[in-house]
Design a protein around this nucleic acid. Structure first.
Ligand SMILES: [Mn+2]
Ligand SMILES: [Mn+2]
Ligand SMILES: [Zn+2]
Ligand SMILES: [Zn+2]
Lengths: 132, 132
DNA sequence: AAGTAGTTTAGAACGATTTTAAAGTAAATA
DNA sequence: TATTTACTTTAAAATCGTTCTAAACTACTT
């Protein structure tokens, strides 16, 4: 499926700007990035785009499930092109995130989901620090 | 150990402002809160404090290990008085966090820590959503 | 008591993100 | 195809959480 079809299937009009972003993000390579990182990639590809449009698109893409947003205590939002359920190593010093594929983690015991709620995904974060 | 001793032990001068915050946060009750939540509690207790001081104190308390900061994709920092290693349920709709004690989770399999790094803590996040 | 280093504060500044509102474009309709 | 409609993009302004500044204040040391 090409990017135009992916956007249509997600219910998004394939505008010029969304296609530029899809060409960068939906190339099958997993990456973690900020809005500013993406703007730099857009510029490097010979295009340009308003930062408002970049935020608009990221929100739409995320709400459609084309990308994810990472849980992070940094003050800049971090997005993730790996939309499979997976986990992360986090170097808190640098903010670097490394993917852990889902089958590399196995839970022996999980707590009972609170009354009235459904399990909507488990994420494991392994904080790491550089050896001294 | 009283709060003045706790602050001294953490290497912090027990100022009037830090004691007010310690009296609220270090009462043994686990809670998740924002800087604004804390300011409201300070006001409710008949005191008042500059928001700059609240941020200063939260940063000091966190860096001394008296409180933790939660990994969250919300744009407001969330702090946690539960400083034990533990896990969370997260209702992404509302942002509500519920503690999961460490012994309620058991990992059968963990990935190899990347070369040159040390494991610095494992956090499990279970996203939940209201049943319809 | 005097000196010093650390702390608090109001207000300014900052940086990330969102809003505004006008112009532009994609899709639907005629 | 031409027209209409709803959606999208944009620059600029606004917003919001947080940090910085610099002057006044306070805790601790000598
Ligand atoms: Mn965050
Ligand atoms: Mn912010
Ligand atoms: Zn990832
Ligand atoms: Zn907690």
């Amino acid at each position: 499926m090409n990017n135009k079809e992916k956007l249509r299937k997600a219910g998004l009009r394939p505008t010029k700007q969304r296609m530029i972003i899809a060409d960068i993000l939906l190339d099958g390579i997993n990456r973690h990035f900020t809005a500013e990182n993406l703007q730099n990639e857009i510029n490097s590809s010979g295009n340009s785009m308003s930062i408002a449009t970049i935020y608009n698109c990221l929100k739409k893409f995320r709400n459609c499930g084309l990308i994810k947003q990472v849980e992070s205590s940094k003050d800049t939002a971090i997005f993730d092109t790996n939309i499979n359920q997976h986990h992360h190593f986090l170097d808190e010093e640098t903010g670097e995130l490394i993917d852990i594929e889902n089958d590399e983690v196995n839970l022996r015991k999980l707590p009972k989901i609170p009354q009235g709620y459904l399990n909507n995904g488990v994420e494991v974060l392994i904080k790491i620090k550089k050896q001294i």
